[in-house]
Design a protein around this nucleic acid. Structure first.
Lengths: 224, 224
DNA sequence: CATAGTAAGTGTATACTATACACGAACTAG
DNA sequence: CTAGTTCGTGTATAGTATACACTTACTATG
């Protein structure tokens, strides 16, 4: 038994919110739209999700050719939710399944005029309802960073305590006390000192740490 | 510019996870399927979401005629997420937007053979991937109850401290200490004693409380 | 080589929160 | 009047959160 053809479904699309931390600020990947609708506006990268393909499969295909990244290699990727208002796409009713991702190392292969990272607190005018989608993505990111060791996806393999505190501060959008942060963070047993150092221009070298596991785990406490 | 017709979208559907607490146990509303696929299996109530209607509008229409409830009157209703595996519906690729709801007072107008509440820890065999959907719904419910005053949606207008503790225990799936629970809960300033009592068969009467607000608010602390 | 400059690294005191735990009070039924 | 049942309550202790400032280890420069 197939679905009756008297029903016409909305168009289904996928969008990706890819976060990273640059210079202590939370950034999101945007694509400059080459065509209408919203030509020359910045938008979340996304595309059409056809029948017979999961939205994750569609996302992988689309991000590969539009952005030049492999979403399977992203350190964190999860579904956010569906956005389904009828008027959100001027071409007609399109329901978008938004995905949220975090990764500080994957680089798009496109030019900066086509694809670029923007600080989330200083975004350009965006196409569609992508402003709203990013807002919910930030809320989810804060939640996940608070309950898991997801912060590792926003750090390089070796990092200093200042790096990791800056990453938390970028996600939370507020400053943390250095001594209290380190006490709480070390109690979570997430990182190990490597014995290596980062040598700064003009100050005491900083110990370099690495995460103990490569998996994303629930944490007993949070740092916010 | 319309979407090119060379793309065929999956069918879009909606499903509802409606929670309530009965006799200290968390229950979920299920519908006995009158037709194939999965004829005579229990399932989450749901239906087709056509182009031109938001999934929430579709949900309202469907629940009205299939279950006899008005989802706008539910004390809590929110989108959970999309479920989109290709094989989840034997009729063909159907992406479902699942909604989560909590309400202890709305009653379906259908017979118990058609529509009934089942304890979440004692569910019958379910159609589709509805077992998985319910599991994620429970996870979300716990999260929301822990961060908001959503517990009020699972209680009658007047309730005892034993009632509210039982509701929390039903959601969390574990017992809480009575004295510590009351200390923590009262500190949240959510309820006021009404001066009324619930007179039990054979024991001291229990004070009846009511919630101070009708809105769902974030809480500073949680009880889990 | 001495000094200035910079970021790293660290501890303590205090307030608050979490947990464990038991018994008298207030009612009804017989 | 007694037995039975649920209600309502406090304290002590351990653990956690917060506020707060100086010394250390290096580089750059004169």
């Amino acid at each position: 038994m197939k679905y009756a053809t008297k029903y016409v479904s909305p168009v289904l699309t996928v969008d990706l919110i890819l976060f990273r931390v640059i210079d202590g600020r939370l950034n999101v990947l945007l694509l400059n739209r080459p065509a209408n609708p919203f030509k020359d506006y910045w938008s979340l990268p996304g595309g059409y999700a056809p029948r017979g393909e999961t939205t994750l499969e569609a996302l992988r295909r689309i991000m590969s050719y539009k952005i030049g990244i492999d979403v399977k290699k992203l350190a964190y990727l999860d579904q956010l939710r569906a956005f389904d208002t009828v008027a959100r796409d001027p071409r007609g009713h399109a329901v978008s399944i938004a995905y949220i991702a975090a990764d500080n190392s994957v680089k798009p292969t496109k030019t900066a005029a086509e694809v670029a990272f923007f600080p989330v607190d200083n975004l350009p005018e965006l196409a569609y309802d992508h402003q709203d989608i990013i807002q919910l993505g930030r809320d989810r990111l804060i939640l996940e960073v608070n309950h898991t060791n997801l912060i590792k996806t926003l750090l390089p393999p070796l990092f200093t305590m200042a790096d990791i505190q800056a990453a938390y501060e970028a996600v939370f959008g507020r400053e943390l006390d250095k001594r209290n942060f380190q006490k709480k963070f070390f109690k979570l047993n997430q990182v190990t000192a490597t014995g290596k150092f980062k040598y700064n221009a003009n100050s005491r070298p900083a110990k370099l740490y690495k995460f103990n596991t490569s998996t994303i785990n629930q944490l007993s406490n949070n740092l916010d």
